[in-house]
Simulated scan of single mutants.
Amino acid sequence: MDIVLKNVKKKDFPVLKSLAKSLGFEITIEDEKPYNEEFVKEILEAEKSIKEGRGIRMTMEELKELCK
């Protein structure tokens, strides 16, 4: 059985870790990564290219036509 504890305060973690260890539980710590790294890289590159003037301007009509 797996139990997941979320929003544990840093000051409470050693107590929980000690308790789990004394009961013979296995502890694994996983850092959540809410975004795919490739997706983040793609977005950052797009922002950079826009700042460098490599973006294009479109009117709302052109955008609506593109989305049809």
Rank of each mutant, 00 (worst) to 15 (best):
D2V: 12
D2N: 09
I3K: 01
I3Y: 00
I3N: 01
I3T: 04
I3A: 02
V4A: 11
V4K: 12
V4L: 15
V4M: 07
L5K: 03
L5S: 03
L5H: 00
K6Y: 07
K6V: 13
K6M: 04
N7A: 10
V8N: 06
V8M: 10
K9C: 07
K9Q: 13
K9V: 09
K9A: 14
K10A: 14
K10E: 15
K11V: 10
D12Q: 13
D12E: 15
D12T: 08
F13A: 11
F13G: 02
F13E: 12
F13C: 02
P14S: 03
V15A: 15
V15D: 11
V15C: 04
L16H: 04
L16V: 13
L16R: 10
L16K: 02
K17F: 06
K17M: 07
S18F: 09
S18L: 12
S18E: 15
S18Y: 09
S18V: 06
L19N: 09
L19T: 11
A20S: 12
A20Y: 05
S22L: 12
S22K: 15
L23F: 11
L23M: 12
L23G: 11
L23P: 01
G24H: 03
G24R: 00
G24A: 01
G24P: 05
F25Q: 08
F25S: 08
F25L: 10
F25V: 09
F25Y: 13
E26F: 02
E26H: 12
I27Q: 00
I29R: 11
I29T: 14
E30D: 08
E30V: 10
D31A: 08
D31K: 12
E32H: 06
K33S: 09
K33G: 05
K33M: 11
P34E: 13
P34L: 13
P34Q: 02
Y35A: 11
E37V: 03
F39S: 10
V40D: 04
V40L: 09
V40E: 08
V40H: 04
V40A: 05
K41D: 14
K41C: 02
K41T: 14
E42C: 02
E42V: 08
I43H: 03
I43T: 01
I43N: 06
L44W: 04
L44E: 13
L44R: 11
E45L: 03
E45P: 00
E45V: 01
A46R: 10
A46W: 03
E47P: 00
E47M: 13
K48D: 09
K48F: 03
I50G: 03
K51R: 10
K51D: 15
E52C: 02
G53N: 01
R54K: 15
G55Y: 06
G55V: 04
G55D: 09
G55W: 01
I56K: 12
I56T: 06
I56F: 06
I56G: 00
R57T: 14
R57W: 12
R57G: 07
M58Y: 14
M58L: 15
T59Q: 04
T59K: 07
M60V: 11
M60C: 06
M60F: 13
M60S: 11
E61Q: 08
E61G: 05
E61W: 03
E62C: 03
E62A: 08
L63H: 07
L63N: 05
K64N: 13
K64F: 10
E65R: 04
E65C: 02
E65H: 05
E65I: 06
L66I: 08
L66F: 13
L66S: 02
L66A: 07
C67P: 00
C67Y: 14
C67M: 14
K68D: 15
K68R: 15
K68C: 01
